[in-house]
Design a protein around this nucleic acid. Structure first.
Lengths: 216, 216
DNA sequence: GAGTCATGTTGATAATTATCAAATAATTCT
DNA sequence: AGAATTATTTGATAATTATCAACATGACTC
């Protein structure tokens, strides 16, 4: 147990996000994804390798809570994460993200604002975390990272638009049908309660919609 | 009338988007907005002045249609624009944007993909259009533009997230209340049918929700 | 391996919202 | 100004979905 006054490393990581302590974590999947958006230089790769922190989070644990600050951008190496906001006594799941994608609180990226949303692991996860401080440094050292992130944001903006669209479909069965088409991989993986919440309907309604869809 | 074979300038602009022909349009409002995200160099400003096209669009005319390609990024100097997708015989309005903001089809920005959404003027508008070709050139000449656009996208991504959230509120009156808080300026400006569509409810439901809200 | 907890299904009923129809009000056009 | 659109409101009814309750199922714990 650390003595009083001991400084914990990576102190800005939420308690549920546990650094593995690996010195040289495997970041190949991250590099493949980034490179797909825009080529990255050796210098940037070296910097990322040096500063990225491999972590694990257990299922159901929080990666970010409403009202707190997000200090990291995370790459999901393995597992699944959801974002949600509390509305009264129920959750509104705004996104569900799986391996090989990035998650963070956009509102925290440049100007540090407290997050309005929660981020929760919905499976045991392996994450790679890069602090915003290191990211800012990286922008300065390797300006091509601005291009990478610009393209990444373009892509994520498109995803957010799709989420905004699907939620505006007025009928529950249309929303589920659209979800089936666009997120086939999630259907037999993510608990239905999260999918129901993502689709703006109750678990019961989703259950009935699914039954009807399977019968026909 | 142009003779057969005459080449129309700015030929990629949709027909409803009419260049004014101004040689030196006032782009001060655009520069203020860009600068608010990140300082821009003199060279970039000169380039923008030289290549930007001042245009007008009449109310109800289309700036982009589903399935076509978007070749420009537009800054709204004056007026209001909405984005919407056809779903069966009804529109789903996914965003409403007014002066001093940018609009484009994000999916077209780098890789040219046909747009899934329509963009329509909901008031007579004055626009400033920069072609993607010129924007690509600008990225190369003035790399700080990558930073500007990155920050701009961060901000717009945050907006898209909010739109995805509001649409998931299960009750119509909650959605309207939230809209009132966040988009007060639009309520006495934009026709209710677009607001209803944006809020994922019928015009009649919105009318009743408004009545109830005003009574209490 | 029994018990507990989380997940998912089904049914009955109530609340919400969409649809259809008609009437007003406001705006645009000529 | 008057006609023609367009926008908004209101009412009656039908369709959809939420809520509450009970039950089934599977996973995880001790």
């Amino acid at each position: 147990m650390p003595a009083k006054g001991t400084i914990r490393k990576n102190t800005l990581l939420p308690v549920a996000v546990k650094p593995t302590g690996e010195r040289d974590p495997d970041i190949s999947s991250l590099l493949i994804v980034l490179d797909h958006f825009h080529p990255i230089g050796r210098e940037a790769i070296r910097f990322i390798k040096q500063h990225i922190i491999a972590c694990t989070v257990r299922k159901k644990k929080f990666i970010l809570k409403t009202g707190t600050f997000c200090h990291y951008i995370y790459f999901i190496k393995k597992g699944a994460v959801r974002g949600f906001i509390k509305e009264g006594n129920k959750d509104i799941t705004t996104w569900i993200t799986v391996e090989n994608e990035m998650v963070t609180s956009i509102s925290s990226l440049d100007i540090q604002l407290p997050s309005i949303e929660n981020m929760q692991a919905i499976e045991d996860c392996e994450l790679l975390a890069l602090s915003y401080t290191d990211l800012q440094e990286l922008y300065l050292r390797s300006p091509e990272i601005n291009i990478v992130v610009r393209k990444l944001l373009q892509s994520y903006y498109g995803d957010a638009e799709k989420r905004a669209f699907i939620a505006r479909l007025t009928k529950a069965d249309h929303r589920y049908q659209y979800f089936q088409e666009k997120h086939a991989g999630l259907i037999n993986r993510v608990p239905l309660k999260y999918i129901a919440s993502f689709l703006g309907m109750t678990l019961e309604t989703l259950s009935r919609v699914r039954k009807k869809a399977s019968q026909h």
